[in-house]
Amino acid sequence: MIIAEPKPIDEIIDSLKDFNRILVAGCDGCVTVCEAGGMKEVEVVASALRIYFKQAGRAVTVDEISLTRQCDRPYTAQLADKIDQYDAVLSLACGVGVQFLAEDYKNKPIFPGVNTCFMGGTEEKGLWTERCQGCGKCILANTGGICPIARCSKRMLNGPCGGSSDGRCEVNKDIACGWHLIYERLKELGQLDRFETPTDPKDWNTSRDGGPRKVIKEVSRL
């Protein structure tokens, strides 16, 4: 899922301080699961905002809502009958949701309430780690199911640099060396031979194309 973290409340206040009618909109998707933007976070942020405005002596409305997903138009459309009552929306969805809202409601300022970080999973409660950078050309088949692009600090494609020790990355001892993991895994799978074939320079065009990337699945298109 997409992992995000709540923005510091002072940063949110900074972007919203001049508005009088605010809607805090959460998303019931990924950001709920990573505890950054679900209904609970909506309540917390909205409550904090109201306290802030009250103490600032302002008469401000801060309403709360959470949509099933903000990355699908039928759900974002659920705001259509309400949005006119607000002069700003704080979206607690990932960057996709914020932008979908912004595209759908062109005359409304939409502000992000979370920092969208990466695609990852739940390591333990309250700890999420990255697994995928969405490069668009998966090489996991050759790397024992462990992605060197997401897991190696230098995105090395042909093995570890000389800096790792005890299986930890030279950049930070808290990070496992991605290539160490790949090596261990290949060894376990008896596929160490795959390691010695040099990997050619990667085709990054699926990752660093101009403008927003597209995924088209013809069979799924209507």
Binding site: G29, V33, M39, K125
Partner: peptide
């Protein structure tokens, strides 16, 4: 209808 099956309850 609101459960995201996020496992937070399971973990906590």
């Amino acid at each position: 209808s609101h459960c995201a099956a996020c496992l937070v309850c399971v973990m906590s």
